[in-house]
């Protein structure tokens, strides 16, 4: 009797928590949509896509082209994945299968500490360390660009990719590993040819979540990428991502202007993109856990 009531209370508590989380998610979405909605009266979706630049302060006709910042976000994100995915999977493979227990003991906390570095510190490193290095290597005057942001975001995405990929590798049945080693494979051959393919969906989920982090990251890119409003020319040119645009402009914009509403449109886009990336990660993750 007593226990049944207790169980009911606990059950109710978790149910309530679930409801609250969903409520918050829906609430954010509704606020974004309500604040973004008026923008569509002033600016058509066609114009948002057609306009070549985002120039809300123009004296005659302000333009709100979203492609430059979409492109910027895409470049910085893909750039960061190009660095973080191979490095992250390699590190995970090394840690899970090749490293000695002692190396693992040291390396794992290091990865966790990496995850705890405040993004403003990374942005700072982008300005004083990565930027000058890029200048030296390329002979440019300005090292605040898409490459700089990519490198820093890679550092931010790495802990997620490493630790989740390592978990995925750890859940591959030991019998596959034994079969491979018994055929005369060494540890690297085994992890690359047998374990990574067997853990592919889990590793993909890890990369998706890392990507979700990179897309939504603001402070680092704000500090390190130069924030030029024009359409990004190359990875070595300055870019202004969606997150940086919102962070820079929302503080100064006059309320209930087209510009204000447009920033919410950008926020809504970001929300939808990250939502689908996380959803995809979840799908891959469940595929992985079902497979093993």
């Amino acid at each position: 009797m007593n226990r049944r009531i207790k169980e009911k209370i606990i059950e109710g508590f978790f149910f309530l928590n679930g409801i609250i989380v969903i409520g918050i998610l829906v609430g954010i979405f509704v606020i974004l949509v309500r604040n973004a909605w008026p923008a569509f009266h002033d600016v058509s979706i066609g114009d948002m896509i057609r306009w070549p630049n985002w120039n809300p302060d123009a004296y005659t006709t302000p333009t709100y082209g979203v492609l430059p910042m979409l492109m910027s976000t895409l470049m910085v994100t893909l750039g960061s994945l190009a660095v973080a995915v191979p490095v992250g999977i390699g590190a995970a493979a090394y840690l899970s299968d090749v490293a000695s227990p002692r190396v693992r003991e040291i390396a794992k906390p290091v990865v966790e500490i990496l995850a705890g570095i405040p993004s403003v510190v990374l942005g700072f490193l982008g300005i004083v360390l990565v930027g000058p290095m890029i200048c030296k290597l390329t002979g440019r005057y300005n090292g605040l660009n898409a490459v700089n942001g990519s490198i820093l975001l890679a550092v931010m995405a790495l802990p997620t990719i490493i630790s989740l990929s390592e978990d995925a590798l750890g859940s591959v049945p030991r019998s596959y590993e034994e079969a491979s080693l018994a055929l005369g494979a060494n540890k690297w051959q085994t992890v690359i040819n047998v374990k990574i393919p067997a853990a592919a969906s889990g590793i993909l989920a890890a990369c998706m979540l890392g990507m979700g982090r990179a897309i939504g990251e603001t402070m680092t890119v704000l500090m390190a990428t130069g924030n030029a409003a024009e359409f990004p020319g190359s990875f070595l040119g300055p870019v202004k991502t969606m997150t940086a645009t919102i962070a820079i402009e929302l503080g100064e914009v006059a309320y209930h202007t087209t510009h204000y509403y447009m920033l919410f449109v950008v926020g809504l886009m970001l929300f939808i993109i990250t939502f689908f990336i996380n959803l995809a990660a979840d799908v891959f993750f469940h595929k992985h856990t079902r497979a093993h």
Partner: peptide, 28 residues
């Protein structure tokens, strides 16, 4: 291990094709 092969208690083919399972040992 190349000279002394092993077959385990529980069949443990790789989650690959039949062909790849056999080719694997040669490729590595």
């Amino acid at each position: 291990r190349r000279k002394v092969g092993m077959v385990f208690q529980k069949p443990n083919p790789f989650p690959k094709s039949i062909f790849e399972n056999i080719a694997y040992g040669l490729e590595i």
